[in-house]
Amino acid sequence: MAMEAHDIEALIRESFPNAKITITDLAGDGNHWAAEVVDESFRGMNRVQQQRAVYASLKGKMDGPNGALHALALTTKVPA
């Protein structure tokens, strides 16, 4: 089952209530997404740690062939 942009944003938002979150449908097929998450809590973390935190917020939606999220390109940043 595919996910909608607002579903993805809502999941991330639960863990990062104050983040700037931008979801983009890369292929226009509702299946290949990009998410940019800009959040103060990332300060002091390296990219791996930042993205692990975002993956954790998605609660297993990316788990393998049966996951609801097939492809999600992640970008994480600290606010400028």
Binding site: V48, M62, D63, T75
Partner: peptide
């Protein structure tokens, strides 16, 4: 880390495709 590919250099996880 939930996705493949994954790159390791000198025993340390560097990241996936985006990183």
């Amino acid at each position: 880390w939930p996705t493949i590919p994954q790159l390791y250099v000198k025993g340390e996880f560097v990241g996936g495709c985006d990183i």
